[in-house]
Computed example of a mutant assay.
Amino acid sequence: MKIFIDSLLQRLKRALRGRRADLPALVVTTEERSRTIESLLHTVEERTRTLEYVARQSMFTVNHQIDFLQRLYVESMPRLLNLNNRPAFNAAGILELKTDYPIALSSNDHINPDSTTEGVSRPTLFVQNCIDVLGSNIKSLDLGTGAAGLVFEFAMNDVLAVGVDGSDFCRTNRIGYWPLLPHNLFTCDITKPFSFVSRDTQAVTNFDVITMWEVLEHIAEQDLAGLLVNIGRHLNERGYFIGSISLLEYVDSTGSPYHVTLKPRDWWKAKFIESGLVMLETHPFNEKLFCRGNGPRFQDFHNYALNPNEGFLFVAQKRSDNERLSA
């Protein structure tokens, strides 16, 4: 037995000596593998930076071409389409905007107006949906209109449409459809009292469709009541208030927020009710055709049906007398 144990110990000692001899080689191999992995990571990082650069340059090129084509279109269309002689392009001949606050001076969207240049897309299918539901003899008001693609699309369908923005940046710099719609686009602080009135009777103009696409979250909470009062005063009794509300943070290049009121849907529903408006659970419109929240696509990055945590769509009307009495 003692002989067997001695033999086993000798074998173990020889095995350990062999392992010790192999250890330096194993360390060297591990270091070489580590250097190889580091080299691969460095290569991947360089390739990633290159791809990011190419993607960024491609995006800039596309944006430049879009801007160029947009400006070419804007400069040539009035004469080609004889727009100035079409009634839908002369809303100012029918109504006028009255306000003591022509610019939203304290709004970050005016101070850093990158956000105001959105809205170039012409939402043809949404406009057709509105006409299918309400008929062609309607009036439309777009608040926070930006580049005014929606107003232009309504006008091209011979619908009387006006748009309002809190900043004059697009007007001053001839951005989007502002050069094509000098009589349909206006500026004012929509949180302060304003009125569209008939030039003939001076009565407040009522609109069949009022839209706000990702604008409400730009309004400070303390200013919402004034805005919603303005909407209620301009909305036809059976008209529709339609739009989208983002739930995501959005800041300018300095870190100052554009989205200053980020609240869930139920909070907004209660806020609407306070101002005599009610969000509808069912309505005759196709939300898949709405201007925002159906991306990803140009200037509409989010899809609220797939990602409800990012925002939501709404259709609202004035509360009926019975609803007011039962509240």
Rank of each mutant, 00 (worst) to 15 (best):
F241Q: 03
N184C: 03
E52N: 13
T254A: 12
L12D: 02
E52C: 07
D165K: 04
D67K: 12
D158L: 01
T36F: 11
M212P: 02
V44D: 09
Y250P: 00
F196T: 01
N286E: 11
F194T: 01
V315Y: 08
N184P: 06
K271A: 14
M59V: 03
A203Q: 14
L9Y: 05
V197I: 13
H110R: 09
F285T: 04
N230K: 08
F4M: 09
D114E: 12
P257R: 02
L9M: 06
S275Q: 15
D114P: 00
N303C: 10
A21F: 12
K192H: 06
E281R: 09
F241E: 01
N63F: 12
F68P: 00
N173L: 11
A327F: 10
T36P: 00
R292H: 13
E287H: 04
H259Y: 08
E96W: 02
L8S: 08
F285Y: 09
I5F: 12
S256N: 13
I219K: 05
A327S: 15
N85Y: 08
V278C: 10
G149V: 06
A92K: 11
F272Q: 03
S58A: 13
T124N: 06
P113Y: 05
G144S: 08
V209E: 00
T254G: 03
E46Q: 14
G243E: 01
S326L: 12
N84T: 12
H259N: 07
N84E: 15
E281L: 05
G93L: 06
I245K: 06
P182Y: 09
P284N: 11
Y177I: 02
L105D: 10
T29H: 14
D189Y: 06
F290L: 02
F169D: 08
E287W: 00
F169P: 02
E310G: 00
V28M: 13
R49N: 13
Y240N: 05
T30K: 14
Q57E: 14
L143R: 05
L83C: 04
T117F: 00
E221L: 11
I245M: 06
L277C: 06
A225L: 09
N294R: 13
V315C: 15
Y73E: 13
K318C: 03
E153D: 14
V215H: 05
D321N: 06
N173R: 15
G255V: 03
H283I: 01
P182H: 08
D300A: 14
L224P: 05
A225G: 03
G232T: 09
N294E: 09
E32F: 08
A148M: 03
L224V: 15
T43E: 15
K288S: 15
Y73V: 00
E310T: 10
Y304R: 06
S115E: 07
R324N: 10
V215K: 01
N137R: 15
T43G: 13
A147Q: 07
A161G: 03
R238L: 09
V44M: 12
R19H: 10
V159K: 00
E281K: 11
M59Y: 07
A92V: 00
R47F: 09
L141G: 05
I103W: 06
A203D: 14
H64Q: 10
E45Q: 15
T61L: 14
G276Y: 10
G135L: 02
I273N: 07
L125Y: 04
V162F: 05
I5D: 04
T201D: 02
V164P: 04
L227H: 09
R86C: 02
D142K: 05
L8W: 03
L181S: 02
D6I: 09
V151R: 03
K192C: 07
I94P: 00
R33H: 12
P102F: 04
G243Q: 02
